[in-house]
């Protein structure tokens, strides 16, 4: 492929800028390889996270030419000949340094989700079709690209009031588990702010695991909230019965 012109964000919480790098690119390279090459030959202190380099750990999330992507799964030959490739950190999260951002918000939200709680006396035998949907959600590699792209977090700064798509997927995996007995619907309506989501499906589009976040997780959860709190028949019924 020859030389490629890269612009890579360099900076920290106090500020920074896109810096130019020219890198020799070989066949098959992905954006993460180019970043590693810059580290090895030009700027050894360029900060970036990575682990598996095979799209399984979700560490190397960044914005490549403005799109939230895993750097390890973005091949250099998908760009036009002579095109400048820009790599910037995820915008939604506070910057630590260069391409590494402070994603601790996600870990805080996760802690607030009541864990898997099997029903008492549950039957631990179930069919594959009973768990296909749950397994889809459990494919999540926590790259947080959905959190990055979600405008509720990105543009409306609702951290603290809105859990974000990753955690609706997580909650859905628990709520739809055949023998989980915990009720997380009040939390979804309250603290986790599911109502802020207006199902634009941006999260689904960026998911590297192709999880149908909006259709399979968020919408069914929204239905549960609606059924519980906004169903007129149910409201009438509970007024009559006091239940």
């Amino acid at each position: 492929m020859g030389k490629v012109h890269m612009k890579v964000y360099r900076g920290n919480s106090e500020g920074g800028e896109l810096k130019d790098y020219n890198v020799d690119v070989e066949e098959g390279m992905v954006v993460l390889d180019v970043i590693h090459k810059i580290q090895a030959t030009q700027s050894s202190d360029l900060a970036c996270r990575w682990n598996c380099k095979a799209g399984k750990c979700g560490s190397c999330s960044a914005e490549v030419n403005g799109k939230p992507r895993l750097m390890c799964m973005t091949r250099m030959n998908t760009f036009q000949e002579g095109e400048t490739v820009t790599v910037a950190p995820m915008k939604t999260f506070p910057l630590l340094k260069d391409l590494a951002t402070d994603v601790s918000y996600n870990y805080e939200v996760n802690k607030k989700i009541p864990p898997f709680t099997p029903k008492e006396g549950a039957d631990w035998h179930w069919e594959q079709e009973d768990v296909d949907r749950v397994q889809e959600f459990r494919k999540c590699i926590e790259c947080f690209l959905c959190q990055d792209t979600c405008h509720v977090l990105r543009d409306h700064d609702k951290m603290g009031k809105f859990a974000g798509p990753r955690f609706f997927v997580r909650i859905a995996s628990l709520e739809m588990h055949p023998i989980d007995g915990e009720d997380r619907v009040p939390l979804l309506k309250g603290e986790h702010g599911l109502g802020y989501c207006n199902i634009t499906k941006c999260c689904t589009e960026v998911c590297p695991e192709d999880i149908h976040i909006t259709d399979n997780a968020i919408i069914p959860l929204k239905e549960r909230v609606v059924d519980r709190y906004y169903d007129p028949l149910r409201i009438l019924w509970s007024k009559i019965t006091g239940k």
Partner: peptide, 14 residues
């Protein structure tokens, strides 16, 4: 040798 400082510095980590 490592360039820069101790903040998130992969060259130093290696």
């Amino acid at each position: 040798s490592a360039e820069g400082n101790r903040m998130f510095n992969p060259g130093w980590h290696v």
